[in-house]
Design a protein around this nucleic acid. Structure first.
Length: 279
DNA sequence: ATGGCCCTCATCGAGGGA
């Protein structure tokens, strides 16, 4: 059984970043480290404007929950990695779900499907764009906490149905101080507040594992850097993009890395992709 | 130094991001 790589990347506009996505996928392909699935966030367009044709031509299927201007998420699958039963864009994405059925929401922040990769038991993949929250005490922060609580409820049902489940996305939560470049300056702020970290801990308590922390990692490892203040050059970032795995998938996990390469390209997303390997 | 940058739009200033 060959290994597979599942990834998450907040592209900050798929329209602007499609060339980077294609370049990144092609680079991993030619490096013999193909990306078998990548969950995207912040598409910033409706489904009818999504570049399905360009991705299909490059060898990938897409499942999209789109929205104008804001949010929008997708799951991208490498056709060559799929089992024989997954012959087309329909059968590639089994039991698809858009958004959280338990949370009425205009904002498109979740898309889910079960995927049959070649020679491997099916995997339930969730692409998630957690609310930013703006700042503790604001209405948007209250929405974030409500959204998180409902996600927890829905996920506990999903976990009862699916033992092989992965939650990939931009969580907008830095789970601990080692995920923040300057923890003292960030105390109590958005992304690191106790309420947000409690919600993240709630996901861990329900049986998810932070795949990145299953392995020895360099200190000061981040996935987002502000466009301003030369933050990337100074490595003044935070780790807010995560791939959480259920126990069954954790037991297959052999690596997890943050790929900083595309963050250094011309006109980059402010997020770097995270890649987790299942052996 | 509480700003800076980037993306979007019944755009050219404002909201949102984190």
């Amino acid at each position: 059984m060959s290994s597979i790589r599942i990834a998450t990347w907040n592209v900050n506009s798929i329209k602007v970043r499609l060339p980077h996505l294609l370049q990144w996928l092609a680079a991993h392909d030619s490096n013999k480290t193909p990306i078998d699935a990548v969950c995207l966030q912040e598409l910033k367009l409706t489904e009818d404007k999504f570049p399905f044709a360009e991705l299909e031509a490059a060898g990938y299927y897409a499942l999209v929950a789109g929205q104008k201007t804001y949010n929008g998420v997708a799951i991208i699958l490498r056709k060559a990695s799929l089992a024989a039963i997954a012959q087309d864009a329909q059968t590639a994405f089994l039991s698809p779900v858009k958004n959280n059925p338990k949370f009425a929401d205009e904002q498109q922040r979740l898309v889910t499907a079960t995927v049959a990769f070649s020679g491997r038991a099916p995997i339930r993949l969730i692409s998630a764009y957690f609310p930013n929250g703006q700042a503790p005490g604001t209405e948007k922060f209250a929405y974030k906490l409500d959204w998180l609580a409902s996600l927890h409820d829905w996920l506990s049902e999903e976990m009862e149905e699916h033992s092989r489940i992965a939650l990939l996305g931009d969580y907008n939560i830095a789970p601990s101080d080692e995920d923040v470049h300057d923890p003292k300056a960030w105390v109590g702020q958005n992304l690191v507040s106790p309420e947000e970290r409690d919600a993240f801990a709630g996901l861990i308590e329900m049986g998810f594992y932070d795949s990145y922390r299953l392995f020895e990692q360099q200190s000061k490892s981040f996935s987002w850097w502000d466009y301003r203040m030369m933050a990337f050059r100074r490595n003044a970032g935070v780790r807010i993009d995560h791939i959480l795995l259920s126990e069954a998938l954790k037991n297959e996990c052999t690596a997890s890395v943050i790929d900083k390469t595309p963050r250094g390209w011309e006109q980059p997303s402010d997020h770097a992709p995270v890649i987790t390997t299942l052996g």
